[in-house]
């Protein structure tokens, strides 16, 4: 017994915390990748995540696209959508103050959420996830604690979310830190003019980066479709928390933002058990504490 709650409950809450952290990780990763390359904070990230969930639902409802195909197709469609946005709108703003990128994408949020609300209403849509993911496994913890009655319930779908997010995060990290394409990206982040002089097509790189970031949000949206009711505002509430996560972690390091995300998911879960009233704001409180002690963020560099 910890915090006067049974171990099985505690374990489940921590597990759910990790799963929330998985979403923070996927979304903050996309934000960080986009920010690094475009110097734009993509306010529309949450709306794009919501579009991912809607596209998954639409695909199944009207085209009979299964969950597995959605996992592949929805990020591609969202990525293309992102490329369109970058080519049509964002690229005009690169020479201006970075704040204009934030404002433009904020306008996009209003348009996207308004259109979706108009088309589907604001009540939640249910999504039938594959039967494989239904239910949960019972995992005995008696080996750890020595108590016969200690066990942990592992909901299969939440486990899948964590696994998928971790795989994708590691793949992204590998791509950016260890491949040739990634080295171009990092170089272009540092000094776009010089990289361009070496004959690398930097504008294309920028476009693809934005598309990739949006595709990550779309992927997170597919994962969310099987977990919760799909509503037009599911993204904007989440993205503000992710902003705080990004401020806490600092956007300098990819690995740093992944670790921060999962850690904050756990902290949130612990707060939910210990003092539920504060669970909504604990991440914001941590953000304040970090700003007071390490203004650049845990893994950040002073810009």
């Amino acid at each position: 017994m910890v915090f006067d709650v049974p171990l099985s409950f505690l374990a489940l809450q921590l597990f759910i915390g990790l799963q929330n952290g998985a979403f923070y990780a996927l979304l903050s990763l996309g934000l960080a990748v986009i920010f690094g390359m475009l110097n734009v904070i993509n306010f529309a990230h949450g709306a794009q995540y919501m579009l991912g969930a809607f596209a998954t639902w639409l695909g199944l409802e009207y085209l009979g696209i299964s969950y597995w195909w959605s996992l592949l197709l929805v990020p591609i469609v969202l990525g293309l959508f992102g490329i369109l946005i970058e080519r049509a709108l964002l690229r005009w703003l690169y020479d201006l103050d970075h704040l204009y990128g934030l404002l433009l994408t904020f306008g996009l949020v209003l348009i996207i959420e308004g259109l979706v609300t108009d088309g589907f209403g604001s009540s939640g849509l249910p999504y039938d996830k594959p039967a494989l993911f239904a239910g949960s496994e019972r995992l005995a913890l008696s080996g750890l604690t020595g108590n016969e009655r200690d066990f942990m319930v592992v909901p299969i779908y939440r486990l899948w979310i964590i696994v998928a997010a971790v795989i994708l995060c590691i793949a992204t990290w590998y791509m950016i830190e260890r491949t040739r394409l990634g080295s171009y990206l990092r170089a272009a982040t540092e000094n776009p003019a010089l990289v361009r002089a070496f004959g690398v097509n930097v504008p294309l790189l920028i476009t693809l980066t934005y598309g990739f970031g949006v595709a990550l949000a779309g992927f997170a949206g597919v994962l969310a479709a099987g977990l919760q009711a799909i509503t037009p505002h599911m993204g904007s509430n989440l993205i503000i928390v992710v902003f705080a996560v990004v401020v806490i972690g600092g956007m300098g390091s990819i690995l740093g933002s992944i670790i921060t995300s999962f850690a904050l998911g756990l902290v949130e879960a612990i707060t939910r058990i210990a003092y539920p009233e504060a669970s909504n704001i604990v991440i914001f409180v941590i953000m304040i504490l970090v700003l007071l002690t390490r203004p650049a963020g845990l893994f950040g560099r002073e810009a």
Binding site: L89, L103, L108, V109, I111, E113, G114, L115
Partner: peptide, 9 residues
């Protein structure tokens, strides 16, 4: 909401 978003952009 949509109109305000468009004006924003």
């Amino acid at each position: 909401t949509i109109v305000i978003g468009v004006i924003f952009v």
